[in-house]
Design a protein around this nucleic acid. Structure first.
Length: 366
DNA sequence: GGTCGATCCCATACCACACCGTACG
DNA sequence: ACCGTACGGTGTGGTATGGGATCGA
């Protein structure tokens, strides 16, 4: 098994939302990111299929695997690599998507699906399925398209559709039933406060969802199994998404991970953010073996971590339960503003001033 | 049992500014 | 009565901070 969804903790995480710093299963991804207009702006992408810890930025055409920069580097430039030709593997950059695309839209966006065996059936089935905001499946759903922002240039190697029937899906342990059940789940009253009721094991509330997810993911990463799994980090920030989505696909066969090559959608401020994040997570990995390595004695601490986590979860649930009913957002527009407002030490700042926190792109302006 | 220090938890203040409600012409 | 404008108050979220509660020595 790979890493579990940071939100529900039950399903295999398949996408990573950097804005939320969370690895999510398909179901939670859609649920969370259909909650409001802002969440729909969160860009998501697939996870590295090798380390399961970083966002996949490239896809190796030959190996048919999505890789983060680190794994791409190590896999294609490692001197010890027995396959000397691996450095010449053709690779495609992976963009991200945002919004709440329907399954059919995802299927059309992720043309990579055609690379996978058995996808024809998959596409047929998915193409006939659609999801409206009520969580019901439809043959057609034009309303959804209003809110959908997708990376038109993205060559996301896998898709929600592909995950259902493809070998890839099998690799990551997603069965077809799970897939369709997730997509067809009831999304009635998807205010974030209701997630816990919906998912049972979820322990995040609207205000603390993503930070907690980050913490949770740490526990899960410590306990993750070596092979398989699928968590995703985005290739870019929300800020750069709109521009990046129209950029052409970049293919290369050299050393992109640590070279000066700029990936599609990884530019400017978002780039800094990406590297910050990568640095944070990489520093964790540097403390131990890569996550795909067999578990070592270090992992014996997993149990204590689990206990700590459970305690934290219990405290959180109690706290949430206590405050759940007195916190109501009276003005969604003001909430939306606050959600995107930059801050310094938690305080709002004047427009244009230096900030240390940006809800959309967790980067610093200095 | 009382006291002290350390730790944890919680409530609150703070910030900028778009928006809402009200008053006025 | 209706409409447009102006203006002040309100509310929003992340973080810091202070105070209360708890625990062990």
């Amino acid at each position: 098994m790979g890493y579990m969804c940071d939100f529900c903790g039950e399903q295999r995480s398949m996408v990573y939302c950097r804005s939320d710093a969370a690895c999510l299963c398909l179901s939670c991804d859609r649920s969370i990111h259909s909650a409001n207009a802002l969440s729909k702006r969160h860009s998501r992408t697939l996870v590295c299929e090798r380390c399961n810890a970083h966002p996949a930025t490239v896809r190796c055409v030959e190996e048919r695997v999505s890789l983060c920069q680190n794994c791409d580097w190590s896999g294609h430039n490692n001197n010890n690599n027995s396959n000397s030709l691996s450095s010449h593997h053709k690779r495609q950059s992976i963009s991200c998507y945002s919004g709440c695309p329907s399954s059919s839209e995802l299927a059309s966006i992720w043309s990579f699906c055609s690379d996978l065996a058995g996808q024809s059936v998959c596409e047929q089935e998915i193409g006939m399925m659609n999801i409206d905001d009520d969580g019901q499946t439809n043959q057609n759903c034009n309303e959804d398209k209003k809110d959908v922002i997708v990376g038109s240039s993205s060559r996301l190697e896998t898709s929600y559709a592909a995950h259902a029937n493809s070998p890839f899906a099998k690799d990551i342990g997603v069965c077809e039933d799970d897939f369709y059940d997730n997509l067809g789940m009831d999304e009635v009253d998807l205010a974030l406060e209701n997630y816990e009721e919906l998912f049972g094991t979820a322990f995040n509330s609207s205000g603390h969802l993503f930070g907690q997810c980050g913490i949770d993911s740490l526990f899960q990463k410590h306990q993750a199994a070596p092979e398989g799994g699928n968590s995703v980090q985005p290739a870019e920030s929300n800020d750069s998404f709109m521009s990046s989505k129209t950029e052409p696909i970049i293919c290369y066969t050299s050393k992109p991970a640590h070279s000066n090559i700029s990936f599609s959608g990884v530019t400017g401020e978002s780039c800094a953010g990406d590297f910050q994040e990568c640095g944070a997570s990489s520093s964790m990995q540097l403390l131990g073996d890569p996550p795909w390595y067999p578990q070592t004695s270090q992992d014996n601490n997993a149990f204590s971590h689990s206990v700590t986590r459970n305690n934290a979860v219990m405290r959180y649930k109690e706290k949430k339960k206590a405050r759940k009913f007195d916190k109501t957002v009276r003005y969604a527009s003001r909430k939306a503003r606050a959600d995107v407002r930059r801050r310094v030490k938690g305080r709002f700042i004047k427009a244009g001033e230096a900030y240390d926190y940006d809800p959309l792109t967790p980067t610093r302006s200095y």
